[in-house]
Amino acid sequence: MLLGTNLLMAQTDAGSAATGQAEAPKVDWTGVAYYVLIFFLICLGVAVVGKILKVYDLTLKMQGKKGLNWNTVMATFCIIFLLIGLYGAYWSFTEQGSMTLPEAASAHGVKIDEMFTVTTILTMIVFFITQILLFTFLFRYRYSAKRRAHFLPHNNTIEKVWTIIPAVVLTILVVFGFFTWQKIMNSENLKDDINIDVTGHQFAWELRYPGKDGVLGPKDFRLVTGTNNLGVNFKKKSSFDDLKVDTMYLPVNKSIRLNILAQDVIHSVYMPYFRVQLNAVPGLPTFFKFVPTITTAQMRAKLDDPKFEYTLYCNKICGGSHYNMQKVVRVVSEAEYQTWLSKQKPYLNDALRKELHFASANEQSNGSTNRLALNN
């Protein structure tokens, strides 16, 4: 359910994301006030019932009769609370189950969902067993003047059972998760990866693709200027053909490596359909690898939504305009990807060439000498 909550926190109107005009999410204060009022009414009802029982108890005693057995009363309330709680858990799954993450659109996403399902089933089994036992014991062994308590200071068998079984189960889950994570973050086969530079700042994502050489040029925060806002180091020739794009295009069934960094505060790269989430930390480059398996067109058909778009969100509350940090992500065929890539403009535009004392694109086409002034 936590993953589903993350999705709800990060997602805003899909139509706004598609047009690039993100609007601040509106809070339905009427709905919030309604549930707050319900909570206070329940508390008031419990208090009223308690007072009525207290008055009834005092009345019995004034009449010389035996008063209420408050241990039995409280034990009964515990059973009622148990039944209400179990029904609440059932209701939560049946009514809010659709709020979990959508269908996985990446290869590793299937494994993540399997882990989530197994963990949820195990924890729910433990939850129901422990809660039923807890409240049953409260009721069964409530105070009685006719029964003496039996003190059990130690039992080796019980200690072994509730230590070994959870340890084994948790070890299996941790090992399963460890190998799944290792497979996701596998740093081998780098030649087959499509490297995409994702840089976060308040309040936008900047995307940079490698050019024909397939290699992203290095960056240095000391080189950041108004024109070179990513601080790309043009002392390296691999930087010359880098591309700056506004929409993230991904070829289906190809390995994607997102090189993630932030320039100011902590952000978080979050793409729920791909089960991708990793913090973007200033000064600490990170990466995430995944393979998209469902194209945008296929997902639109699955959801029967012709306007559907995959979206890159920020899943950290990074400031007042946090909700603006969205980028459209499109998964397309290899041919469509190559066509799109060929139409993208280089990061090294004329304004940046002028700042670095490069020859402009027009001068280069006229055969002028291209002179590089080293970045200072």
Rank of each mutant, 00 (worst) to 15 (best):
D197R: 11
K307C: 10
A18Y: 12
T72L: 13
T225N: 03
D242T: 06
G4V: 05
S360P: 00
R353D: 01
T123R: 13
Q21C: 11
K26H: 04
G97R: 03
L82F: 11
A105Q: 02
L101R: 02
W340S: 14
N156C: 06
F176V: 08
N228H: 04
S342M: 11
A17F: 10
F135S: 02
H108F: 11
Y249T: 07
P153F: 12
V276E: 05
K354L: 06
Y143M: 03
Q182H: 14
L284K: 11
D305H: 06
F116I: 10
G31M: 07
L223N: 00
A359E: 02
A104V: 04
G85S: 13
Q131C: 15
G283Y: 07
S255W: 06
T339P: 08
G15S: 10
V269S: 01
K160A: 09
N362S: 12
L261N: 05
F127C: 08
V174F: 10
P25G: 01
L170S: 08
T12M: 04
E336P: 09
D264H: 05
A373E: 00
K54V: 14
T199K: 07
A204M: 09
F290G: 06
K111N: 08
A262F: 02
V281L: 07
G97S: 08
A14M: 13
D241Y: 07
Y34N: 15
K237Y: 15
N366K: 15
L207S: 06
V174P: 00
T136I: 13
L170E: 03
I165R: 01
F287W: 14
D264T: 04
K51S: 07
M248I: 10
P346Y: 10
F288D: 11
A361S: 08
G4K: 01
A105H: 02
N370H: 09
F127G: 07
L101D: 02
A262S: 03
V328C: 06
T247Q: 13
V55Q: 09
P251R: 11
P285M: 12
V269G: 01
V215C: 08
A22K: 11
K307W: 14
